[in-house]
Simulated assay, not measured.
Amino acid sequence: MKIIVSKEIASVCPEFVGAAVEAQVKNTAYCEALWDEIKVLQAEVTQTLSNELLKELPGIAATRRVYKACGKDPSRYRPASEQLMRRLLQGKDLYQIDTLVDLVNLASIKFGYSIGGFDADKLVGQTITLGVGRDGEPYEGIGRGVLSIAGLPVYRDEVGGFGTPTSDHERTKMTIETTHLLVLINGYDGNEQRVADNARYIQELLKRYADSDGGSVTIYK
């Protein structure tokens, strides 16, 4: 898969760097060992962070700045990493969906980046472009219904938008049948080393919990 960062994104965030992890996987409904890891990180988050400190984390702060630069209110359309950690700070557990979704959520919380996980076999074409959502552009967020993505960074394939830092699209979502995974890490803070570390961490999680060899990593900017 070729991933292109559009001039729209480069103009508001020239330092952007992303990482794609592509792998063959086996999904399961639940993984107890994975959830043991999630609970350890959950305790760490609740003991060390507050809602104010959360907004200052580099990955989240940079994503919020890009939202504002593109014309979107980041407090109304929060980046997914911020949504997840705010939920933990409210004393709530993460939603348990399936192993692939839970694994991506763990990686997002650990590094503070909004991460999209997709069933790669549902993508159309060989090129993905990261651009900015337009007025009236159709988009159905997972569990959210119709979502206005005008002013949101959005990944598009040949059919249209399928991933934003706030919510991914129903069309390309992972299911229990997913065997070909694509994960996209959004580093709006420009920290290539941390983005790469996040990708390698996902590879290790896939090896431990998704019967995978970890697949390949591509850095794009």
Rank of each mutant, 00 (worst) to 15 (best):
K2I: 05
K2Y: 03
I4L: 15
V5D: 02
S6N: 03
I9E: 01
I9W: 00
C13V: 04
G18W: 09
A19P: 08
A20Q: 04
Q24K: 14
K26P: 00
A33F: 02
A33V: 03
L34C: 09
E37L: 09
V40A: 14
L41R: 11
Q47G: 08
T48P: 07
S50N: 15
L53R: 15
G59M: 00
R64A: 10
R65S: 14
G71P: 13
K72D: 12
R76L: 14
R78S: 07
S81V: 02
Q83N: 06
M85D: 01
M85G: 01
K92Q: 14
Q96V: 14
Q96T: 13
Q96F: 02
L100F: 03
L100P: 02
D102A: 12
V104K: 07
N105F: 01
S108I: 03
I109S: 04
G112D: 06
S114V: 06
I115G: 07
I115A: 08
F118P: 00
F118V: 09
A120R: 09
K122Q: 13
Q126H: 13
I128W: 02
I128G: 00
I128K: 00
L130F: 12
L130V: 03
G131N: 06
G131A: 12
G133R: 01
P138D: 08
Y139K: 13
G141E: 01
G141T: 01
V146Q: 09
S148A: 14
S148T: 12
A150D: 11
D157R: 05
T166K: 01
H169Y: 01
H169N: 14
R171P: 04
T172W: 00
T175Q: 06
E177T: 09
T179G: 03
H180F: 02
L181R: 04
L181G: 10
L184H: 00
I185L: 06
G187P: 08
G190Q: 09
N191A: 15
R194T: 13
R194K: 14
D197L: 10
A199C: 09
I202A: 04
K207A: 13
K207V: 14
R208V: 07
A210K: 02
S212R: 05
S212V: 11
S212H: 10
S216H: 10
T218D: 11
K221L: 06
